[in-house]
Amino acid sequence: MEEHAICPWCQTEIVWDEEIGPERHCPHCENELSGYRTLQLGLEDEEELGEPAGHNQEQEDWRGGSLDGLNPEEDDLSEFIQYSREHLAFEETVEQIIDEQVEAPECPSCREYMLEAGKQTVTSSSFEPVVPAALSAPILPAPFQVVWYVCPSCFRTENKLATPDQERLVQLLTEAADGKGND
């Protein structure tokens, strides 16, 4: 008989049989299944929420202690709440930008999707091409364009040859191979 569970991290159904037993890690997202924990943050004011009758007025902070003896300098959570709102807005904007992009490569450092920052035209005055003996012409003659990407998580930048210049490079190398075959 097979057992079914839902990963609390990625919401994927996990199926296992009795012989193997329950999984310790999700086979899809690789998060620990038994270590799922949540943190509740009050992002709205209690007055706005309209507290139900009989609600215990003593609040607890995220560490489990009472907020009655709150030291404003050490235990002020307002910066954390403000950061959370800013972080959510940041994530939403990043997601919108990535949705608009034709291509969104993964960052080689942190594997987040990268944002297209723009194109740079490389001219012959700022680029000295290499001329391989096998080709007797530059692999990448100037001018050409490079597309720049930036990671919104670790801020690493990467670049990639623009599509028209990729096609030009492939054509150049193909023609060079065809020319050698005719010799």
Rank of each mutant, 00 (worst) to 15 (best):
L135D: 00
H25W: 14
A162C: 02
C29G: 06
E158K: 01
V102K: 14
G64R: 04
E158N: 00
C10W: 09
V94L: 00
A104M: 03
E73Q: 14
E18T: 09
E2V: 11
T12G: 10
G181N: 13
R111H: 15
K160N: 05
F155P: 00
P138G: 06
Q120M: 13
C26P: 02
A134G: 15
M114C: 06
E128I: 10
Y149V: 01
S153A: 14
Q57H: 15
E32G: 13
A117Q: 13
A177L: 12
G65W: 11
W9T: 04
W148C: 04
L39M: 11
F80D: 07
E112P: 05
R24I: 14
Y36D: 04
E30T: 11
N182D: 14
G181H: 05
E60S: 13
V170P: 03
G181F: 04
L135E: 05
T93H: 12
E2T: 12
A162E: 03
E167K: 15
L77R: 12
P8H: 08
N182Q: 15
Y83C: 01
H28N: 14
R63Q: 14
L161P: 01
M1Y: 04
V146D: 01
E100S: 12
A104I: 07
G54M: 07
E44Q: 14
E92H: 09
F155D: 08
E58L: 07
E58N: 11
P105N: 04
A177Q: 10
Q11G: 01
T163F: 14
C107P: 03
A177T: 09
P27C: 07
I14A: 03
L43G: 02
C26Q: 03
S153V: 03
E46A: 12
N159Q: 10
I97T: 00
V147E: 06
E112K: 08
C154N: 08
P138K: 03
P152E: 07
E116S: 07
E44T: 14
L77I: 07
E13S: 11
Q101E: 10
E79Y: 10
P22H: 01
A176F: 00
V146G: 00
T38W: 05
N71F: 00
E73Y: 02
